[in-house]
């Protein structure tokens, strides 16, 4: 199968079960959202898929290949990338340099010592295209620590997209972004390449309903239900457990 195929995935920390028997598929072109109350195990699930955590049981396949035992760097090379919940950029570098790094790593040039990092026209063109896609052009030569938080989130997405992933996991892309700037994030997600498989983990329900074509509800480490946005909005159990219950 093309894309990501998760079967019976479990994760325990000692006696605490944070993921239990999760089945999950993500195909090219998918726009899925993973929602659930705090502590439901959303971030744990993302970390299991990207290889930051090792699963206690179950399998993770990517294009049919078992990737459950691979390290983070290896999975990135295969095409699975995740943005950080808390912005993790290179604060003293300019936007341009922040995007140059992942491209050079992706191309396997990180050990080159006798060429200029900025000397490759194809890489610089790609940086330009990425910046245009996220409207970052005017900020190109500013250090990212000087940018507004919403703009930093865009750099975060652009940086991850620079790895040319085939599966993109957005871990709370709008976390900490003032509501006046969330449209920047929704617009950016809408403009992602069509064939990319996208999973959004998010608290902001407006954003989820705007970008997702399918929603998975996670409660206490287990999948409660999966459906289209209208199905989920109409699901009494979900409303009671999550949407209605004064979520934060």
């Amino acid at each position: 199968m093309q894309g990501l195929e998760v079967r019976g995935l479990s994760k325990r920390f000692g006696g605490l079960v944070v993921s239990e028997n999760i089945d999950f598929d993500l195909k090219p072109g998918d726009r899925k959202a993973l929602i659930g109350p705090n502590g439901a195990g959303k971030s744990t699930f993302a970390n299991l898929v990207t290889g930051i955590l090792a699963p206690s049981g179950g399998t993770i396949r990517f294009d049919g290949q078992d990737i459950g035992g691979m390290g983070e760097a290896h999975r990135v090379k295969l095409g699975i990338a995740k943005t950080f919940q808390i912005t993790t950029l290179f604060p003293e570098m300019t936007v341009r340099e922040n995007l140059r790094l992942p491209i050079l790593e992706r191309e396997g040039r990180g050990f080159r010592m006798f060429r200029r990092a900025s000397g490759d026209a194809a890489v610089e063109d790609e940086i330009g295209t990425l910046m245009a896609q996220f409207d970052l052009g005017p900020l190109a030569d500013r250090p990212v620590r000087d940018l507004a938080y919403g703009q930093q989130r865009l750099v975060e997405m652009a940086l991850t997209l620079a790895l040319k992933p085939r599966v993109l996991i957005l871990d709370e892309p709008a976390a900490g972004v003032p509501s006046s700037e969330t449209h920047l994030i929704t617009d950016a997600i809408a403009r992602l390449p069509e064939d990319l498989a996208v999973l959004v983990i998010e608290h902001d329900m407006d954003l989820v309903f705007k970008v997702a074509r399918s929603i998975v509800v996670l409660v206490q480490g287990r999948i409660l239900t999966e459906g289209t946005p209208s199905e989920i909005a109409g699901n009494a159990q979900v409303r009671e457990l999550y949407l209605g219950g004064g979520h934060d």
């Binding site: 983070e72 760097a73 990135v76 990338a81 995740k82 950080f84 790593e105 992706r106 940086l159």
Partner: peptide
């Protein structure tokens, strides 16, 4: 500046 991010971009 950010070793976690360098790992995440596959370095």
């Amino acid at each position: 500046q950010s070793p976690e991010r360098m790992l995440a971009i596959g370095a």
